[in-house]
Design a protein around this nucleic acid. Structure first.
Lengths: 193, 193
DNA sequence: CTTGTGTCAAGAAATAGCCTTGATCTGCGT
DNA sequence: ACGCAGATCAAGGCTATTTCTTGACACAAG
């Protein structure tokens, strides 16, 4: 159950076996069935989750009931509404399992304890957040400057398998384009080759 | 929004207008879309819900992933995992909206306050629980003594409209029979008349 | 005034959910 | 040991829902 977590951590920092054993005690495993929610708008995000297995999406719903996909989170990724997790304020996020998932949850207090007891995790999470920030910045820039096709191609490049795992309209939402546009872009691309 | 709640309460006890106004402040309205969950297994049941509109089912899932429907809850009914609500232990129940629902939620503390401030509610909830117990006892007995057809006929008698609102396989599960058996029983019944 | 994309509407295609039916098996009561 | 109620397994068909595509048109920005 914790293999992937161990792998991901030790890709970035060095910890002893004993430290990892301690680390494990702070997480609670949780299975989340497809279409169930890890977090719903209005709730406080009480956990940060490590995805051992499965795939989730984070999205918000605006006043017009339209959905905006912010993130897909797959094996080896972390998922939470960071803002709500840290401040304790109610979240606007919905985090939904798109496939049956196996998660490792950690609460705010356990997380603090982890950082306190094993300072190397400070470094681990810093690196994590850094990477996330960079990716998010890139997406922001892309949203200004790239065409629909460019955005789609980048996604395919970075996550070639995601197309088989999530419906196109969610991809479109993630890219900030309409499903119709995505459909046409794909049509043009295959027509060309 | 609170009409039905008022009606249901005053069917059983007498309260003043002011008292009902106070009562209203303790509930929070909540819309729950079809296929969404009010409660998932493993969570603590933080609310008891009054159903203003819609229909929900409570069910458990056993080790073999089989579902057992314990209850349907429709307009004017209350729904919760009483055990989890009272003890604060994690629930084994799943409570899912089968239709878009409008609910009135009350938390444990608000509920305690309600009972404390307006003792007539002690009586109201006692009556409610009594009725529920009686129905549950009847179902238990029926599960021993009745044939599949008898169980089905009783259901039709008591809740003639439920058939139009929930799929047969859920009815079967509620009756403790397989969907195949229910299908055959229905076939035989219509063949006879 | 062309290009990229959005909006609206309509269908087509694909998938999932639901119900039925037949064949076969099982436990229980007589 | 037999018969019956009901379970299980497997297949098929129907319906509803979800997903994707396409066309017609609007519109804003370069």
């Amino acid at each position: 159950m914790y293999e992937l977590l161990y792998k991901k951590i030790t890709e970035n920092i060095t910890i002893t076996e004993a430290e990892f054993e301690f680390c494990k005690t702070l997480f609670q495993p949780k299975k989340l069935r497809r279409k169930r929610f890890l977090l719903g708008e209005g709730e406080v995000c009480k956990y940060t989750a490590f995805v051992e297995k499965g795939l989730l999406r984070s999205y918000i719903i605006d006043e017009k009931e339209a959905e905006y996909v912010l993130q897909f989170s797959m094996e080896g990724w972390w998922v939470a509404d960071l803002s709500s997790f840290l401040t304790g304020e109610p979240s606007e996020f919905n985090i939904e399992a798109l496939e049956d998932c196996e998660l490792l949850l950690i609460t705010r207090p356990s997380w603090s304890l982890l950082l306190e007891k094993i300072p190397a995790f400070e470094r681990y999470f810093r690196i994590l957040i850094e990477k996330n920030l960079i990716v998010t910045q890139r997406r922001l820039i892309a949203s200004f400057t790239n065409t629909a096709e460019e955005k789609y191609q980048k996604l395919v490049q970075n996550f070639p398998h995601i197309l088989q795992r999530v419906p196109q309209h969610m991809i479109a939402s993630y890219l900030g384009i309409t499903p119709e546009t995505l459909s046409r872009v794909r049509g043009q691309m295959t027509a060309r080759k």
